[in-house]
Amino acid sequence: MLVYLIRRIGQSLLVVAVMATLVFLAMYAVGDPVDILASPDADEFERRAIAQRLGLDRPLWEQFGIFVWNALHGDLGRSFVYNVPAVDVILQRLPATLELALAGLVFSILIGIPLGVLAGLKPNSLIGRSVMSGSILGFSLPNFWIGLMLILLFAVELRWLPAGGRGPTTSVLGLHFALFTWDGLKHLLLPALTLALYKSALVIRIAQAGTREVMLQDYIRFARAKGLSSRRIVLVHVLKNILIPVVTVLGLELGSMIAFAVVTETVFAYPGMGKLLIDSINRLDRPIIVAYLMLTVVIFVIINLIVDLLYAAIDPRVRLSEAKG
């Protein structure tokens, strides 16, 4: 198990290194940051001074070395716009995005598993077919437009929920969360729902396929022959089996939820990292973009790692084979 763990961590570090190189090449080798930093009427001397200050006059490999060295010390540059370390700007926005992504994850489970199991239990019924058709829609519809339509319905027409922004936050352990106030929850509802749409379609598909497969198994027959209620069969025997693929996929998808939050946050003017990324792209605030990307890569890699370990914990068969191997 320890060998496995070490190997997995090694792989993860390799991925981070590869991505760091790519991000570096994309952000530092393409385009000239001096263009953005220097005022348009700066002369050659001023431009060279800026380049020197940023270390841009050195050879590429040396710049890369400096980038890596600084990155290892948690320094990914200073924001051109805010003039504070980029990592600080990102981290300040991180709780909002995490809150959104987690709420989205919860929604997709709450929507996806019951509907998916239902559709799996009655695959040929009207309701089963409707759920599956609906899931195709959830997959293919452009997320941002759904968000706009939700705003139109619930904020503009019905006036039940706010159209955007983040509600009042309370400080918990030094981080600011909106989760604990009613108003904060109201602000979170629509964005989280929008974000959850795609994932719930995914969960529905996995849960439906899983349920259909599990229901045909002999152990379900045996469970029924034991006289168990269908409630217990579905809630324990079926659910526990389909949880394995659902957890695996959802775990992997948590990362992509953070990525998708870019769109949702823009639609709902929600002040998270995603909106910050779009703003930074528009303002050419490259250190922020780099910091965002590096942070996202790290989050992805960590999530992959956790899911692997979690998976081993849920499925007794994996646990055993890993322990042996």
Binding site: Y219, A225, K226, N241
Partner: peptide
């Protein structure tokens, strides 16, 4: 029927590898 199953009527199946739920 459910009250009778497992209580008065029981059944065992062919493939022992699949009659028990692998995750319980």
């Amino acid at each position: 029927l459910r009250r009778l199953r497992g209580k008065r009527l029981a059944m065992i199946f062919q493939d022992p590898m699949t009659t028990l739920n692998p995750v319980l």
